[in-house]
């Protein structure tokens, strides 16, 4: 595994804007994520953080500005977009494992069908990934037979199987029972340590403190603060962030 050396901007958002009807969900967003960097995006619900995350691999279209991955501007629909998405891993709040495929097939499908990896090779790599996230023994089962935490770890393995340049996490623990949150966070912290570039939308402040290089705080479709976790949690500058943090700490 590569060591943790932040380098050039891998993900770059410049002047990104998006509306849902009247609602301005992304207001002139500028964000650079360097190679090897772990950026945690937090903020109140409705602040646009999920939309931001989904826009990075164009599951949400944008109206203005540009998003580029490793120097390439996101293309519109078509073959180039599919190719670019293959380099961007995505982990969803609701796991979205392919319901009609086994755990192993969930992980091998991308490498086999998108990258043309031979089945034997894909199986071997998938098993190694599943073992790494601690669900290797579940390989022949269907997703519905696994717990939420296990499903989410499979989803991470599925994304990793594509050997992505960057991983996006859209509230990966929000749909999980409390006792399962840590097993997923542990996998993510391990990934961060190994130098994976990550953009993580989450409500888990513990994860942000432990694994983030930067915390981006969003409110009302804008990036309000962009600081190190240390700075953000001990000395937030904006009133919005102070207000947000004070609400978290009262419970």
């Amino acid at each position: 595994m590569t060591t943790h050396v932040p380098g050039d901007a891998l993900v770059s958002l410049n002047g990104v804007n998006k509306h849902y009807g009247q609602l301005h969900v992304l207001k002139d967003i500028n964000l650079q994520v360097k190679k090897g960097e772990v950026v945690v995006v937090i903020g109140p619900s409705g602040s646009g953080k999920s939309t931001l995350c989904r826009a990075i691999n164009r599951l949400e279209t944008i109206e203005g500005g540009t998003i580029s991955i490793d120097g390439k501007v996101l293309p519109e629909e078509g073959k180039e977009l599919a190719q670019l998405r293959a380099d961007v891993g995505m982990v969803f709040q609701s796991f979205n494992l392919f319901a009609h495929k086994t755990i192993l097939e969930n992980v091998t499908l991308g490498p086999i069908k998108v990258k043309g990896v031979a089945k034997a090779q894909a199986d071997k790599e998938a098993m190694a990934l599943l073992d790494r996230v601690g669900v290797g023994h579940q390989a022949p089962k269907l997703p519905a037979q696994l717990s939420g935490g296990q499903q989410q770890r499979v989803a991470i393995a599925r994304a990793l199987a594509m050997k992505p340049k960057v991983m996006l996490f859209d509230e990966p623990t929000s749909a999980l029972d409390p006792e399962m949150i840590n097993e997923v966070l542990d996998v993510m912290i391990q990934l961060a340590k190994e130098g994976m570039t990550m953009v993580v939308v989450t409500h888990e402040m513990g994860f942000a403190r432990k694994a983030a290089d930067r915390v981006v705080f969003m409110a009302d479709g804008q990036i309000v603060e962009d600081a190190t976790p240390e700075e953000f949690f001990t000395n937030p500058k904006s009133d919005r962030a102070k207000d947000f943090l004070s609400k978290l700490l009262t419970h």
Partner: peptide, 27 residues
Amino acid sequence: VPIGQAEAARSIGMKFGQVLSLIVLPQ
């Protein structure tokens, strides 16, 4: 078929035809 199935398929780089024939139509 839940929209998340197609989104997950697209996010691992599948093209429209693959998303439909491998993930959505079988379900």
